[in-house]
Simulated scan of single mutants.
Amino acid sequence: MNLNYLTLDLSDDADGVVTIEALASTPAAHHADVMAEVQQVLDWAWRHFPHTHGPVDEGLDWDHDLQVNVEGGQWHAVTLTLSASARFAEAFEAAFPSDRD
């Protein structure tokens, strides 16, 4: 799946929890397109891991937080943060390839 606005950044911690950040900062005219991509990512997650949403440190596969900020009245910054298990992150990277080293 292609993402035209969201930039992905993946990192993992010592406990094996992967953090996936999907970021976009655009003029107001593109905000609906960004939010459509956010919905595409969330729809994928719900479709592939429907019963394991919740705290990863409690054994579930994924959790999410969505932040939307308007800067200067016209610029929209969107951050979708996913906390993920290794198996979720692997499936996510297959569906949404990134430039992760």
Rank of each mutant, 00 (worst) to 15 (best):
A45R: 01
T26P: 12
V17K: 08
T26A: 02
R47P: 00
L42Y: 03
D43Y: 03
V38D: 07
A28Y: 07
F49T: 07
A32S: 08
P27M: 01
P50Q: 03
Q40M: 11
A36R: 06
S25C: 12
G16F: 04
V38C: 08
P50R: 04
W46K: 13
R47Y: 02
L42F: 03
V41P: 11
V17T: 10
T19S: 12
G16E: 04
A45K: 04
P50V: 05
H30F: 13
A28S: 14
H31S: 15
H51P: 04
A32I: 06
H48F: 11
Q39W: 02
Q40P: 10
A36I: 00
M35W: 00
W46I: 04
I20T: 11
P50E: 01
V18A: 10
L23D: 13
D33L: 12
P27N: 07
F49S: 10
M35C: 03
G16Y: 06
V17N: 08
Q40G: 01
H51T: 15
A24Y: 01
M35A: 05
A22S: 07
V18R: 10
H51D: 15
A29C: 02
A32C: 00
P27K: 01
V41K: 01
V41H: 02
V17Y: 03
D15H: 12
E21P: 09
V38G: 12
D43N: 13
H51L: 14
Q40N: 08
P50I: 02
W44Y: 05
A22V: 06
E21C: 11
A29M: 07
Q39N: 15
Q39R: 14
A29D: 11
V18L: 08
T26E: 05
W44K: 06
M35Q: 06
H48I: 12
A36H: 04
L23R: 12
F49K: 04
T19F: 03
Q39G: 15
D43I: 09
H31W: 05
V41D: 01
L23M: 09
A28K: 11
A22P: 02
V34H: 03
A29E: 14
Q39L: 13
A45H: 01
E21R: 15
A22C: 09
W44C: 05
E21D: 15
A29K: 05
V41S: 06
I20Q: 03
V17F: 02
L42S: 03
V18W: 15
G16R: 08
T26D: 01
A29F: 02
D43K: 10
A24M: 01
Q39F: 08
R47H: 11
A45Y: 03
M35R: 01
H48W: 09
E21A: 13
S25M: 14
V38P: 14
S25H: 10
T26V: 15
A28T: 10
H30P: 09
A28C: 07
T26G: 02
P27G: 12
V41M: 02
